[in-house]
């Protein structure tokens, strides 16, 4: 690992219908383990990953909401949740597993510009 990079993950998929949300999380945690600077953005259907009271055992899956709580344990502190995506899905901050600050598109746009690499799924 020669160069430390500023890497942003934009997680845009709902938690269970596809495996994209899990893949995105796995990549981010791997980057964090290998000491990269990692940012995590929940956008579009990705905000559904944060919904409280998921019980994925009902479909024989692991509850992704629990795994999301691991982000900060792995040192990923810069977590952004898109306010417009929350609003259009009638979700409130109180509905989420994490205490988050909502951001607007300009914040996300600035983060993308500042990033060395962006994974978007």
């Amino acid at each position: 690992m020669t160069h430390k990079k500023f890497i942003t993950f934009v997680s845009r998929s709902a938690p269970y219908g596809t495996h994209n949300a899990q893949l995105c999380l796995d990549m981010a945690l791997a980057c964090a383990v290998f000491d990269q600077e990692v940012n995590y953005v929940f956008l579009d259907d990705g905000v559904y990953q944060l919904k409280r009271e998921q019980r994925a055992a009902a479909i024989k899956r692991k509850t992704l909401g629990n795994a999301i709580e691991a982000l900060s344990l792995y040192g990923i502190e810069n977590i952004m949740v898109d306010g417009a995506s929350m609003q259009s899905r009638a979700l409130q901050v109180a509905d989420l597993v994490l205490p988050v600050t909502l951001v607007d598109r300009a914040d996300i746009s600035a983060l993308l510009q500042a990033s060395d690499v962006v994974f978007n799924l």
């Binding site: 845009r12 956008l43 579009d44 417009a84 598109r105 996300i108 746009s109 993308l112 510009q113």
Partner: peptide, 8 residues
Amino acid sequence: DSCSSLLL
């Protein structure tokens, strides 16, 4: 829709 809102 999302992409265009993030372009600079």
